[in-house]
């Protein structure tokens, strides 16, 4: 799903239950990350739950990210982060600010470094990987 479409959908939802259900649902549809990739090196720190992230560069230079978490809500939030960042050029990724999207979804508090869900750290890792891919 496109992030634009998700934002329109979220505007129709009332109450936290529906939003959380939607988030959990997004998590269930997340592209699976093979168990072999759930290593210490791929782990994003700063999370109450465990979060792993990998990326591969396509021939056209775009970065494709795959990530997973052992917590449902975090997995859903990861899906949203990846909608924003995945399959874009490194340069584009480095310049992207996910906060306006999260604000529009009413989830901006989840991006705070104060939250222990690791999303803030995950965005940092995505940008670091993009910087490394740009060379």
């Amino acid at each position: 799903m496109q992030i634009e479409k998700l934002a329109s959908l979220f505007e129709l939802l009332e109450g936290w239950e529906d939003r959380y259900r939607q988030i959990i649902d997004l998590g269930k549809k997340l592209e699976p990350l093979d168990e072999e990739h759930k290593t210490a090196a791929n782990k994003v720190h700063g999370c109450t739950s465990q979060v792993w992230l990998i990326c591969r560069q396509e021939e056209d230079g775009r970065l494709h990210f795959v990530a997973d978490s052992d917590a449902h809500i975090v997995r859903g939030l990861i899906a949203i982060v990846l909608m924003i960042f995945s399959d874009r050029q490194p340069e584009e990724i480095i310049g992207l600010d996910p906060l306006p999207w999260f604000a529009r979804l009413g989830l901006d508090q989840h991006l705070s470094p104060m939250r222990s869900n690791g999303l803030h750290a995950m965005v940092g890792r995505i940008k670091a990987l993009a910087a490394a891919a740009r060379g």
Binding site: Y20, T48, D70, H72, I73
Partner: peptide
């Protein structure tokens, strides 16, 4: 079926 993080987030609501 639920991570403690999930439970904590729902209970907070």
């Amino acid at each position: 079926g639920a991570h403690p993080h999930d439970i904590g987030a729902i209970l907070d609501q």
